[in-house]
Simulated scan of single mutants.
Amino acid sequence: MNDSLPPATSDAAPGLRADRVSRRADGRLIVDGITLTLLPGETLGLLGPNGSGKSTLLRLLAGILAPSAGVVTLDGRALPRVGRRATARRIATVEQHAHTQTELTVREVVALGRIPHRRAWSSSTAADTRAVDAALERTALTDRAGQSWHTLSGGERQRAQIARALAQEPYELLLDEPTNHLDIQHQLDLLDLVVGLPIATVIALHDLNLAAMYCDRLLVLREGHVVAEGTPSQVLTPSLIKQVYDVQADVTHDPGHPVIRFLRRTPKP
Score class of each variant (00 low, 15 high):
P267F: 12
S148Y: 07
S10K: 09
N180P: 05
K242C: 07
H150A: 15
S123C: 08
T201H: 05
H181E: 01
V71L: 05
R59M: 10
P6E: 14
I162K: 03
G41A: 06
R130N: 08
H206N: 12
G51V: 14
G45Q: 03
S233Q: 08
R265W: 03
D32Y: 08
A8D: 09
L38I: 11
L46Y: 08
L5C: 09
G41C: 07
A126F: 02
Y214N: 03
D26Y: 11
P116T: 07
P14R: 13
L60A: 03
L29S: 05
P49F: 07
T100Y: 11
A134Q: 12
A228C: 13
E103V: 10
H186G: 10
L60E: 06
L236S: 05
V132W: 02
T129C: 04
A92G: 13
L44T: 10
R217H: 13
T266I: 14
E169S: 15
A167K: 02
C215Y: 05
L47G: 04
F262N: 03
R164P: 02
Q234C: 11
D3P: 02
V202T: 09
D75S: 15
V195N: 00
N2L: 13
A120H: 06
V244D: 06
D189N: 10
G76T: 04
G76S: 13
P14G: 00
L191G: 01
I184D: 01
A131E: 01
L38R: 00
Q158E: 07
T237H: 06
R138S: 10
L221R: 00
E42S: 14
P49T: 13
